[in-house]
């Protein structure tokens, strides 16, 4: 049974990804800051398949030890889904420097360092999948999300070069770019704004976390053996 590590796993998209993977026969180690009751309930349902590690990705210097702990406790890792991220919004001119720093640390530096160590177990076995969760905002831009947008573009740039680096070791690296989804990250967007996002979609709706989880799942299957360095956009057509 293949083991997949999912960051930001206890709620939102990460949680949907965990559910999808468990249904499809993977074991999962979820990492996050605050364990939720829904995650714990899922763990009861999948006792021998779903695990968790509580960790704050602000602690970059402990990521190496975290990766070691995961490999020695749960075994060889097949897949890594870099999903955890902060979504601070605000006009750049008034955004506090500490928030700029935190966004870059949690959304870019942490997934890069985690990938460095988690990919070792894939390198040795010449088999693995890395999936970075970016956003349509990485390419479209959005008022009030310049720093967040920069971090999401950074991740897709990371994907493309790393795919070239790890290809010969039979490890694929891809980006999944969701459009607007209804999660705690977007809970401040309401009414008018939501309607306008929906209206801009050719399908007149928004993608859901389950839609995105399906694509992540697909990239882990043998059917995606020859897909690397690419981006799958799931946004109900909003950026078409």
């Amino acid at each position: 049974m293949d083991l997949v590590v999912v960051t930001g796993a206890f709620k939102g998209l990460g949680f949907a990804i965990c559910k999808h993977l468990l249904k499809n026969g993977y074991s999962v180690v979820g990492i996050g800051r605050t364990l939720t009751s829904e995650y714990q309930e899922l763990q009861e349902q999948y006792q021998d398949y779903l695990f968790h590690e509580v960790f704050d990705f602000n602690n970059i210097e402990d990521i190496k030890a975290l990766s070691k702990k995961i490999t020695s406790k749960y075994g060889v890792i097949y897949g890594l889904v870099n999903n955890a991220a902060l979504g601070h919004d605000g006009v750049l001119a008034t955004m506090h420097e500490s928030q700029i720093e935190e966004l870059i640390r949690v959304n870019v530096q942490a997934p890069i360092v985690l990938t460095k160590y988690i990919s070792r177990s894939m390198l040795i076995r010449q088999r693995g999948r890395i999936i970075n969760i970016s956003s349509v905002i990485a390419t479209t831009g959005y008022n009030g999300l310049s720093v967040y947008g920069a971090t999401k573009s950074a991740l897709s740039g990371f994907t493309r070069s790393l795919a070239r680096e790890l290809g010969r070791a039979n490890i694929t690296v891809n980006t999944v770019a969701p459009g607007f989804m209804d999660t705690s990250m977007t809970s401040s967007l309401k009414g008018e704004k939501l309607d306008s996002i929906r209206r801009r979609s050719p399908l007149n709706r928004m993608a859901t976390v389950d839609d995105v989880a399906n694509s992540v799942g697909f990239l882990l299957t043998p059917a995606a053996d020859n897909i690397t360095g690419s981006t799958i956009t799931i946004d109900a057509g909003s950026t078409a």
């Binding site: 490999t71 070792r120 177990s121 390198l123 040795i124 680096e165 790890l166 070791a169």
Partner: peptide, 13 residues
């Protein structure tokens, strides 16, 4: 260079 990355990973294990 990829070979060295693999070497360091093997030794780490």
């Amino acid at each position: 260079s990829l070979g060295f990355a693999i070497l360091v990973a093997i030794l780490d294990e």
